[in-house]
Every structure is written in C-alpha cells, then in structure tokens.
Amino acid sequence: MYPAFGTEQKKFFELIYSKEFGTKLNTQRAFTLTEMTITLVLLSLLASVLVPRFVLISDSARDALVDGTEAALVGGMKNHRAFWMVSGTPGIGTTSAVNLNVDGIVVRYRNGYPVNTQDSNHVPVGTPNRNAASTRLFHLFLNPLPTPVIPRNSSGTGWVMLANGDCLAVPRRRCWEYRVNGARYARITYSGGTGDFYLD
C-alpha cells in the first residue's frame, strides 16, 4: 500500500490517508459574510473617530509653527531695536531714516524700528521675492528660517512674502503669510512704524 519509505514517511502517509485528517480539514471554516460586514463597520467607525483627531493634531502643529515664527520675528526685531538703542538712538524724533551697519548688513531704521535693509545680500540667492522688503526683514529677523519659503503664486505649503497691499493697514507694514496648499492659513503683519506685530 505504501511506497518503500522509512518510519517517519510511513506515519506521514498514514496521517494523510486517514479519515481524521480529512475531518480536521473540513472543520476549518472561513469568515462569514456577516462577520466580514461587522468588521468593516467597526473599522469605518474607528476611522471616523481617528481621522478628525489627526486633522486637529495637524492644525495644532500649524498653529504652533505660526506662533513660534511670530515669537521669533518679535525677538529678532527687538534685537535690532536694542542695537539701535546702544548705538545712541540716532534719528529719534525725526521722520528720516537712519542706516546702521549690523554685522555687515545695513539696516534702515525709522524711530528705532527696522523697516528695511539697504540690499538683499543677506538673503540666499534663489529665495522667492528676494528683493522685496518683507523678504529682507524676514531673513534679517529670523535665524534659522522656518521652511519652506514659497513663491506668491504657488499652490504649495509654506511661507509667502507679501506686498504692502496684502498686509493689515498699519504704518510701514511688512507681512508674511503661511499657506497650506496655496490657501492662507495665517498672516503676520509687522508695523515698522510702531514695532508691533499682528497675527490674523
């Protein structure tokens, strides 16, 4: 009945040809349609709870990024204001601008607040809107920069340097906008006339 095999092989063939083996195979069953449906419903419910939480976490991370950038901008501006003060507060009480050399960057002040730089040499080549005053101040106040900085017409996510007309109506305004997929998420406006920052 069996080929000429050793003891182990004989036991194997006896097991395969036995009725018990066939019975064991037949008793294993697959998932029913009801069980599969219940599993899918439970997974859908779980996803409906977790996805909004993930979105909230993403928004919280963006809020933290914007708040951190605003705080860094304020700190950078205050450092330059302090430099102006220790330089003897030149130009105080006048409407004319005063240029001071700050670590090799010529910064233009009005009443002690930085409003621009003489050139954009401190801004990396290839930066979008490199020559704009808002770009110059962004790079002056922040080190390191939040990334990425994207062009104005981009549909990406990152910081955009805006023109004066895109900012809140405050004196000597410069502003920066954080966009998500091309849509404004938050905007930070700096008033070079008062040294105040506005977040909207």
Rank of each mutant, 00 (worst) to 15 (best):
E20Q: 06
R174P: 07
S154M: 04
D59E: 10
A183Y: 03
R174K: 13
T69V: 13
R81M: 07
G165W: 00
R81E: 05
S44I: 07
I92F: 12
V49F: 08
L142E: 04
D196F: 12
A82Q: 11
Y178G: 08
L168M: 05
N131F: 12
L100R: 01
I38N: 01
P151I: 11
L45A: 14
A72S: 09
W84K: 07
D63F: 06
A4S: 01
L42G: 05
S58P: 01
H139V: 00
R53H: 00
P151A: 05
F83A: 11
N79W: 07
E8R: 15
V102I: 04
V49I: 10
L15W: 10
P90C: 02
L46E: 03
I150L: 03
E177Q: 15
L145K: 13
F31P: 03
D200R: 03
L33G: 00
F197N: 14
L65V: 11
N116S: 14
F141Q: 04
D63N: 14
V102K: 01
Q28W: 06
P128M: 10
V102T: 02
R108K: 15
V49L: 09
V115N: 05
P114S: 10
K24C: 07
L40P: 01
T157A: 01
R110I: 15
F21M: 09
A169E: 00
G104P: 06
V149N: 05
A163Y: 14
V170I: 09
T157K: 02
D59R: 07
V55W: 00
L162C: 11
